[in-house]
Write a protein that binds this DNA or RNA. Structure first.
Lengths: 157, 157
DNA sequence: GTGCGTGCAAATAATTTGCACTTCA
DNA sequence: TGAAGTGCAAATTATTTGCACGCAC
């Protein structure tokens, strides 16, 4: 993996925790993870890392443009690889399921609106809160959506 | 003030703190406030209220549909009266200045996108991060937006 | 070698909650 | 009066930071 190069390019030493986190995001089929998710997954891999380090690494990656941070509901930050096309998200308020989409028309409207107000566009945050297709079970988890981890560990705290 | 009625309608007793908070939002020219903002303003008015009560009241008002809660940058929740037309926001990343707008085309696209994915629309969150017109004022000034604005605390250095 | 990075624990920041005391209906 | 509401302090939750030690370069 030329991943090590990504780190160097960002001016970051290629340390074990950083390599592991980067690799996790690349190999995992789950694109969106919280710091806690990353922590647990690496622990499960047998890596003895501290949660504080995970937070530090994630923040550094965000600043380096490697990851993107989102604030969907639930208070926790959710990270995803920032590769590929810019996109927004549909988030199921029940299951936490996330779908990505890209809509050029919305982007055009946003640019237009900003211009009309004399502002200079920096960025935008758009997430659609919705209910996933009621394919059957859905009513049962009354709790506000937690984003579903790789191993959907349903814990009550 | 028929405000008292609003509370009753929401099944809430018309207590002093609640009346004061409600009144504050109605009379203030500043539409967007944090719990801290509300707390300070009421304290300044000479009302001896606890911050915890402010949080409780704001949350109750949100659930009653009287207020709307936003999570712009800065970690703190920002509340605004939920009266009038549904709208989204442009937020200046420097000053924290907030501009409201409504764009039917974007709303249409959102409905369309959700439908295409088989989801049921609940809501959407859209805020545009931008730079206010550099008309000269920009340094250490938040025009009519807010005094010690919640969002003005981030970058504004 | 040495300075950046890390682990751990303690510190923060925003918001919530337990509890005894007020206040509204 | 009695339940709903409030103030205060302690508790939570998510994330950050100080420090002594360890690892990449």
């Amino acid at each position: 993996m030329a991943r090590e190069h990504d780190l160097k390019a960002a001016g970051l030493k290629a340390t074990l925790p950083r390599m592991k986190v980067l690799h996790l995001f690349h190999k995992s089929k789950v694109r969106h993870m919280t710091a806690e998710d990353v922590y647990r997954l690496l622990m499960d891999e047998g890596l003895d890392v501290g949660l504080a380090t995970i937070y530090r690494v994630l923040t550094q990656f965000e600043q380096a443009g490697i990851l993107k941070r989102h604030h969907f509901e639930g208070g926790k930050s959710i990270f995803e690889l920032s590769e590929g096309e810019r996109h927004d998200h549909i988030v199921c308020v029940n299951t936490g399921q996330i779908v990505e989409f890209h809509d050029p028309e919305i982007v055009r409207r946003i640019e237009s609106i900003v211009r009309e107000h004399g502002f200079e566009l920096v960025d935008h945050v758009l997430h659609i809160r919705a209910l996933a297709p009621t394919g059957g079970v859905e009513r049962g988890t009354a709790a506000p959506a937690r984003h579903t981890g790789p191993t959907a560990t349903r814990r009550a705290r």
